[in-house]
Amino acid sequence: MPHLDGSLFFPTISTINCGSHTVLNFYNTIKTDKEVLSSEKVYSLLLERRSLLILKDRMYTEYLHGIEEITNDIIDDKISNIRFCESIKQNRISLTRNKRISLTIRNVPKVSKLNLNSLVLKK
């Protein structure tokens, strides 16, 4: 489901994409004061194996993002970063998704601090 990560996290996240590729979609939202009426896909990024994605500023705070639950991706010129992808040599190819692990790094500035000096380690 397309979503925002919320204001708890500082508006910069880093994700290391391991295993399979995926396609991350970004959506504009049409909303009222109380609910989201619809969302419109505006960007898609191919996250290649062993790639790093950094989202910040408006891409983090204003656009919903999500990954569709599909097993094959058609990689074509609708992918915004296609010309920068090393592994794609031709247009309109189909890539099959496999197991993917993502490591997402977020700064959470509003957490309580653990006093490590009060911990006593015993042998």
Rank of each mutant, 00 (worst) to 15 (best):
P2D: 02
H3K: 00
S7L: 14
S7V: 12
L8Y: 13
F9N: 03
F9E: 10
P11M: 04
I13T: 09
I13A: 02
I13K: 04
S14G: 05
S14I: 11
T15C: 11
I16T: 05
N17T: 08
C18R: 02
C18Q: 05
H21G: 11
H21C: 14
T22Y: 07
V23P: 00
L24V: 08
L24W: 02
F26R: 07
F26S: 05
N28P: 13
I30A: 13
I30W: 08
K31C: 03
K31G: 09
K34W: 06
K34Y: 14
S39D: 06
S39H: 13
S39M: 09
K41A: 03
K41G: 01
Y43L: 10
S44Q: 05
L45S: 00
L45R: 01
L46H: 00
L47T: 02
L47C: 00
E48M: 11
R49W: 02
R50C: 11
R50T: 12
L53D: 00
L53A: 03
L53Q: 01
L55R: 01
K56W: 05
K56Q: 05
K56R: 10
D57V: 12
D57W: 04
M59F: 13
Y60D: 02
T61N: 11
Y63D: 06
Y63R: 06
L64I: 05
G66D: 03
G66R: 04
I67Y: 00
I67K: 02
E69V: 10
E69C: 07
E69W: 09
T71S: 12
D73V: 14
I75H: 01
I75N: 03
D76S: 11
D77C: 11
K78D: 11
K78V: 09
K78H: 13
S80P: 00
S80C: 14
I82A: 08
I82L: 15
C85Y: 01
C85A: 05
E86C: 05
S87K: 13
I88E: 06
I88P: 04
K89L: 10
Q90M: 12
I93P: 06
I93Q: 07
S94E: 08
L95T: 07
T96S: 09
R97K: 09
K99Y: 12
K99G: 09
K99L: 14
K99Q: 07
I101Y: 10
L103R: 08
L103W: 06
T104A: 03
I105V: 10
I105F: 02
N107D: 04
N107C: 04
N107E: 06
P109E: 10
P109W: 07
S112A: 15
S112M: 13
S112P: 10
S112F: 15
L114G: 07
L114K: 11
N115W: 09
N115R: 12
L116P: 05
N117Y: 13
N117E: 02
S118W: 09
S118T: 14
L119E: 03
V120R: 05
V120D: 12
L121S: 15
L121F: 15
K122D: 11
K122E: 12
